[in-house]
Amino acid sequence: MNTELITQVAAFIWQEADMLDHGEYAQWLESWTADGLYIVPIDPQQTDFANTLNYAYDNADMREKRVARLGSGESISTSPVPRTVRDVSRFRVLANDGSNVTVRCAQNLREFRKDVLKHYTADVTFELVRSGGSFLIKRKIVRLINSTDTLQGIGYIL
């Protein structure tokens, strides 16, 4: 087992999680490749995301818009902005060709807004591309375990 690689990808993914929980979106937006996609599918078995309905299928433009909306104060469902704390763990490298690394991990996120505490559990798959001494995100696919059930508004980024 390549524990050095696990340590590298875990450090990067923990940093991303920390940015999102602390609203450091400018830096988060720069963590992506130009063609990067942030995807939250509905069907847990789905792999053809472009041709199916998802909760989110964000390219760079949509990620920027999602971040802008979150901070704009124009949206009543994100004012006040929900507070989140997420744990990411159970890292497993699924593929590694030296420049691209695919890693799957577990994410447990708690959200609090107004008077409600919510819990979202997801399998998250990252496709990372080596860049400088670190990585950029090419794909982040968040498979909520209750994605086929009814959900309530999720205005922030999973």
């Binding site: 998802n54 299928y57 508004g153």
Partner: peptide, 27 residues
């Protein structure tokens, strides 16, 4: 396919729990 992809993306943009419209209606 490209036209249907456009429809899917337009739907995702406004609708659903992570859309830019539905959660505000719901609130």
């Amino acid at each position: 396919q490209v036209a249907n992809q456009a429809r899917l993306r337009l739907h995702e943009h406004f609708q659903g729990p992570m859309g830019f419209g539905t959660p505000d209606d719901s609130e």
